[in-house]
Simulated scan of single mutants.
Amino acid sequence: MSEPSLQHPLTGKRILVTQADAFMGPVLCEVLEEQGATVIASREDIADPDAPRRIVDQAGSVDILVANLAVPAPSSRVGDVSAGEWRDTFATMVDPLPRLMQAVLPGMREQGHGRVLVMGSASALRGMKRASTYSAARGAQMAWTQSVGVELAPENIQVNLIAQNFVDNPTYFPPEIQENPRFQERLKREVPLGRLVSAREDAQFAAYLCSDAASCFVGQVFPVCGGWVNR
C-alpha cells in the first residue's frame, strides 16, 4: 500500500459514501478520489431499514464512512406537520445513523481504527420558521454525533459532523433557486460572504476531516456556511 502524500492525503483509504447521487454526494466522491481514496459510492435508498447493513456488506472493509443524508426540506407550518412528513424525514436522515454505525463498527474495531463523518446542516443551530421537522432531524444528527463521538474515541474511531448552510448543492440550492432575484437578495442580506460556499470548498474540508491529520477531532460539530448575520 502506498503512503499518503501532501497531494494525496487519502491514499490507501477506502471510503463509503451514502446517497452518493444527492446532496453533497457527487462532489464528495470527486474530491475524495482526487485525494487518493478508493471511494465506494452507494446510491441505494437509505430509508430502507435493511439498506445500511446491505450497503456495508457490499462495500466490504472500509476505513471511513461518510454519512451523506438528505431529503428535500419540508416547509410546513408547525400546525400542519403531518405524521408522514415527520416519519419520512427522520427515516432518511436520522434512523440510518445507528444502523450504519452498527454495520461498520465491527470492521473498524477489528482493524483498530475508523472514522465516520456526517454531512449535516446548521439549520438546528438557529431557529427558522417553517422548518421544525427538518431542523429537528438535523439536530438529532448533531446530538447523535456528539454522544457517539466521545464514546468511540478511546477505540481510535472518530465521529464528527459538518453542519453546513448556504453551501452550493443540487438538493437544497438548485440553479432555479440560485437564479431567483429574491434568493440573491437574501444572500446579500443574511450571508456576510454574499455568496454560497462552493461545493468543492465544502468537500475539501470534508476530505481533511477524513485524513489522518484530523485524528484529534472527536464528537465535533463543524459549522460550514457563508455565515449568518446575527440578529
Results as ranks from 00 to 15, higher is better:
138 R>P: 04
81 V>A: 09
52 P>H: 10
172 Y>V: 08
151 E>M: 02
74 P>L: 09
219 G>F: 00
4 P>A: 04
71 V>S: 11
203 A>K: 00
44 E>R: 11
73 A>Q: 11
215 S>Q: 05
2 S>I: 10
93 M>T: 05
178 Q>V: 10
23 F>L: 07
2 S>F: 03
43 R>M: 12
155 E>Y: 12
3 E>M: 08
145 T>K: 03
158 Q>W: 08
224 V>E: 10
146 Q>L: 08
222 F>C: 01
143 A>R: 12
30 E>P: 00
70 A>H: 09
126 R>G: 12
152 L>P: 08
189 R>Y: 12
219 G>S: 02
143 A>V: 11
22 A>N: 04
70 A>K: 01
180 N>R: 14
96 P>I: 03
36 G>A: 08
146 Q>D: 05
156 N>R: 11
8 H>S: 00
132 S>I: 12
40 I>T: 02
30 E>I: 00
76 S>N: 15
1 M>C: 09
111 Q>K: 04
175 P>Y: 13
9 P>F: 02
226 G>Y: 07
118 V>C: 01
7 Q>A: 15
223 P>L: 08
225 C>V: 04
1 M>A: 15
219 G>K: 01
129 K>D: 15
39 V>A: 00
26 P>C: 11
169 N>D: 07
155 E>A: 14
29 C>Q: 07
201 E>A: 10
117 L>C: 11
168 D>K: 00
107 G>Q: 01
109 R>N: 14
64 I>S: 03
73 A>Y: 07
13 K>Q: 15
168 D>E: 01
109 R>V: 13
141 Q>I: 01
26 P>K: 08
140 A>G: 08
30 E>F: 01
37 A>D: 00
110 E>T: 14
157 I>N: 05
141 Q>E: 15
90 F>T: 06
59 A>R: 07
80 D>M: 08
193 L>C: 08
118 V>F: 07
65 L>C: 10
107 G>S: 05
102 Q>Y: 14
162 I>H: 02
134 Y>H: 12
162 I>E: 11
129 K>C: 13
86 W>P: 14
167 V>Q: 08
162 I>S: 00
119 M>I: 13
96 P>T: 13
105 L>H: 03
94 V>P: 05
48 D>E: 13
43 R>P: 03
55 I>H: 03
159 V>H: 11
